[in-house]
């Protein structure tokens, strides 16, 4: 009866399948407390002047105007597409420039290709850059470049670099170290190894990651249009909602952004399924 030494029983004598550790207990308590706090919070809201029935109807009416009767009133269709193009352009510029710079920085950040101190320095600096949200970077660059598309591209570029260097350098590190050793043993120089072993082995990952970042940058570019006056469809959305209170136009613009986002999502899913390593897929 050796197994019984490791067996755990509940108080009623039934065999337990959980290890019964602290973690589970803490998780349960956390969820319970959060549930209670949520319910209590609703009781403390200021409900004066609220006609619940009227509020519901008005909200439904607004939503109906926004999403069931979308229309453009302050600008034309060609203008709308032009603005979407500007937003895509902002995202494209930040992504392409970012990808090129990231490639070289990632070579410096990859532990198997670079010196330890250099790799660590690059990683730490970029971890800081990544920790600050994109919007904040844009506003920081706005001090020098003024609010507008330049600041938006610079801010998005910086954050894209921080993101892509991490992704790229991890892809580089997954390259079989035997391949690098074999090329070094033939007398190949560092650049030979990068161009003829690292690049062909990781090229598909690099393009997939870049596209994934483009998808993210599109979303950010929409927000930047409104927040930093970078122009594009985001700015029109801001004008329509905050300036004209034109719910129908807000709906239309939302649909347009949604459509682009779906197209990008489908494309990146396709790329992901075809080219990503098993570990990153999920």
């Amino acid at each position: 009866m050796q197994a019984t030494t490791y067996m755990k029983r509940r108080r009623d004598g039934r065999i337990s399948l959980n290890s019964g550790n602290q973690v589970q207990h803490v998780m349960q308590m956390t969820i319970l407390i959060l549930t209670i706090l949520t319910i209590v919070a609703f009781l403390f809201f200021d409900y004066t002047g609220l006609n619940f029935k009227k509020a519901l109807v008005e909200t439904a009416h607004n939503l109906q105007a926004m999403f069931l009767e979308p229309a453009l009133s302050h600008f034309s269709w060609s203008e709308a597409f032009y603005q979407v193009g500007i937003t895509l352009g902002l995202a494209f510029l930040a992504t392409i420039l970012g990808a090129i710079i990231s490639f070289f920085l990632a070579l410096a950040a990859a532990a198997n290709l670079s010196k330890e101190w250099l790799s660590k320095t690059v990683r730490i600096v970029l971890a800081f850059v990544r920790a600050v949200p994109t919007v904040l970077w844009v506003l920081i660059f706005a001090i020098a470049a003024g609010l507008g598309s330049e600041a938006a591209v610079l801010g998005m570029l910086l954050h894209s670099i921080a993101y892509l260097v991490k992704a790229f350098s991890e892809a580089f590190e997954e390259v079989d170290k035997g391949i690098i050793e074999a090329l070094r043993a033939t007398g190949a120089s560092w650049w030979h190894i990068v161009v003829h072993a690292i690049l062909p082995s990781t090229f598909t990952y690099l393009t997939s990651w870049t596209f994934l970042r483009f998808e993210i940058n599109f979303g950010v570019a929409v927000a930047m249009g409104a927040a930093a006056g970078a122009g594009g469809i985001g700015f029109e959305l801001f004008m329509a909602s905050g300036f004209y209170f034109d719910l129908r136009e807000v709906g239309m613009i939302t649909y347009m952004i949604l459509l682009i986002a779906i197209i990008l999502e489908v494309m990146s899913t396709f790329l992901k399924n075809h080219y990503f390593p098993e570990t990153v897929k999920n």
Binding site: E181, A182, H196, P200, S201
Partner: peptide, 10 residues
């Protein structure tokens, strides 16, 4: 080498 160490995609 034991594991040949070729670049598989080339």
């Amino acid at each position: 080498f034991q594991h040949y160490n070729l670049v598989p995609r080339l």
